[in-house]
Design a protein around this nucleic acid. Structure first.
Lengths: 190, 190
DNA sequence: ACCTGAACACCGTTCAAGT
DNA sequence: ACCTGAACACCGTTCAAGT
């Protein structure tokens, strides 16, 4: 006669993600997550080996969301450059709407195994495809890395509150992106 | 009759910084830092209000080091572009040599008060100066932010071990930097 | 003045016991 | 099968007591 399950793996991950976004990583304690799904801390170990495993599942969730919003953004424009611009804005908007989730997947403690790598590659695929159209197949990977680095750095600095010398940050974003894409296009197209 | 001090504020910060670089942020416990300077955990509260205050002092140390290496790098080249390139390489080299310290000053938990802001501005000053030479006074701030965002994003992704689709990362860095500076120069110079 | 042991609240995690 | 209370080791932090 088995005891009935009070919750599920998916419900635990969803609850943990909500706590992360509301209270930051230090708020994601085993007790808090357990309480959010109506059980006690130790019971979580029936479903996850440890706390890191829960954060790891949140990373999958977030990477899938980013893959989705980037693919949708790419579909809103026809030209390679227009697609990259749309994805860059979507990336920044996602980070603004989900700052803690975004910070998690780039944090030093983020999980870096094969499964997460595959999820990251899947998320970047539409950027790589558009960049192939803009810069050619041979230069697509390097150009994608350049745009991705700038994008992550910009969002990361913005969210840390470190743009503090004034100026219009939205305009800085647009101009930085244009500068980058001009430079990439100037180096020889497809 | 006062009890003789076994250590000093500077010694505590230096010890904490060494532990941070060796064991990461979670290794910087009050007990570990205290033991490294020959005292017990609670004694640290005579010199620092809490653990965050010790990390805050490490941030000042690191920001001063970065200000120093950037200023030195700028002095090795004559042209504005040459100076920016030298500073970009020095920035990346510093992060490679001091990954935990570098991660600390861009971590979500980094202290963002007026004193730290001043230290950050001081560190970036030579970049802003060189950028004024390359892009003109009016466009210097935006261009500096674009380069800084790319630089931080690149280093951050590199250290997280997230460049995993092959290719020469050193060459990617050089090409990304050249692309950016070409784009900035093309938008209208000084 | 500075240092210490003891104590407190709070973590993650383990485990024997319950249903 | 899943859940629970009790326990353990380990944190940051406080404080009264030592010199």
């Amino acid at each position: 006669v088995a005891a009935p399950a009070k919750t599920s793996t998916a419900a635990v991950v969803a609850a943990a993600r909500a706590i992360l976004e509301a209270d930051g990583p230090s708020g994601v304690t085993m007790q808090a997550v357990a309480a959010a799904v109506g059980i006690r801390g130790p019971s979580l170990y029936k479903r996850f080996p440890d706390r890191l495993a829960i954060l790891s599942e949140i990373e999958f969730l977030v990477l899938a969301e980013i893959a989705d919003i980037l693919a949708r953004a790419a579909a809103t424009a026809a030209s390679p450059r227009g697609r990259i611009e749309a994805m860059a804005r979507a990336h920044r908007d996602y980070a603004t709407a989900n700052p803690q989730s975004y910070a998690l997947i780039y944090s030093p403690g983020s999980v870096n195994d094969e499964a997460h790598l595959a999820a990251r590659i899947a998320a970047i695929r539409p950027v790589l495809a558009a960049m192939t159209g803009l810069a050619g197949a041979e230069r697509a990977l390097t150009a994608t890395r350049t745009v991705t680095a700038w994008l992550h750095g910009f969002v990361s600095i913005e969210q840390a509150g470190l743009f503090r010398l004034g100026g219009d940050i939205d305009a800085t974003f647009d101009e930085g992106l244009a500068t980058l894409l001009d430079g990439i296009a100037a180096r020889g197209g497809a």
